[in-house]
Design a protein around this nucleic acid. Structure first.
Lengths: 172, 172
DNA sequence: GGGAGATAATTAACATGTTAAGTGAATTCG
DNA sequence: CGAATTCACTTAACATGTTAATTATCTCCC
């Protein structure tokens, strides 16, 4: 009721905070979320055709680049939280796409590696995945893409230092 | 075993594809994912203290800027899929943070609006949320932040045209 | 060598992402 | 009018995100 005239900043809201919150559709988290969704929307259909989710694909890619990895290391590489990774590894193992064996030196650790079947699956997905990436690069521009990635890396870096306080004591 | 010397491109992997996939930790989806996570990691603790998830906060923010909205419109604004929104609205309504009433003209539509309690909750969260955003802006640089958002918007736009084929027939 | 603490991984519990199917109401068109 | 279609929303089913608690193992140190 009593609609105010169009005012994107909502600066005249009665009794509201003095400084209106920025139009949240233009907030940084939303911008990042939408950009990522726009990108992933390109890949998902292809992955789906091969029976893989985005996260499962990340794990296979991470494993393909190395001989074997501990779960914790894999979590860091594939940027997944432990619990998510634990579930996905269970499924991938049941599908015989990966193999695990506990480390001899430390029974707590388990070494994960991609299986032959996993390698073959990757080989069948990679071409279309590469093609999609190439198309994205073509549309957006290779140079601009590199610039964007550089900025994203800087953003990540400048925010990572927040947790430094917790780590200083560890390193000391 | 027989570890090869460090080779980020893995170009010499025996029997592997000729064109190695780019180091996936530098792929665009990963860059976007990590950047967004770095940002959200700043906000989550504050939201959590107020009993809100990131998505619930998005919905409240979206509703605060308008009088009322249909569910579909709200989904678009808060960038949530229908099923997610449906669940979250059910919970927010149970907590009396929002109100719903079915539209008179069209019984299928339901109008959602933020409640008094919801407004108060927002007011209690907004200050710290704004402070965090300001700190991010300070660290990364306001100009760079604007540049980044501009590029993200362009990326989204240049990929959105992919689905144009499906829409042409609608507009015709 | 044995108990307190640290560590690697999993499990638990709840919230959301994602696609498909279902439900009820409105619209179209014969 | 009324059957078929479309539409708005919800529910279902499964996969992942997120935090906390558990389990099993290892390390340290007395």
């Amino acid at each position: 009721m009593a609609k105010r005239p169009a005012d994107p900043t909502n600066a005249n809201a009665p009794g509201a905070r003095q400084v209106p919150m920025r139009d949240f559709s233009r907030s940084l988290p939303m911008s990042l979320l939408r950009a990522r969704e726009a990108v992933m929307r390109q890949f998902r259909p292809s992955l789906r055709e091969h029976g893989l989710t985005e996260q499962q694909w990340r794990i296979l890619r991470a494993l393909a680049a190395i001989e074997a990895a501990e779960v914790t290391e894999l979590a860091r590489t594939a940027f997944l939280l432990g619990p998510s990774l634990s579930r996905i590894l269970r499924d991938l193992e049941a599908r015989n796409l990966i193999e695990r064996k506990t480390a001899k030196a430390d029974q707590r650790r388990s070494m994960v590696s991609i299986s032959e079947k996993g390698v073959k699956l990757m080989a069948s997905v990679a071409p279309s995945s590469e093609a999609i990436y190439a198309e994205i690069t073509r549309r957006f521009g290779a140079r601009k893409l590199a610039e964007l990635q550089e900025m994203l890396g800087q953003l990540e870096l400048c925010l990572a230092t927040t947790e430094a306080r917790d780590e200083i004591t560890d390193d000391a």
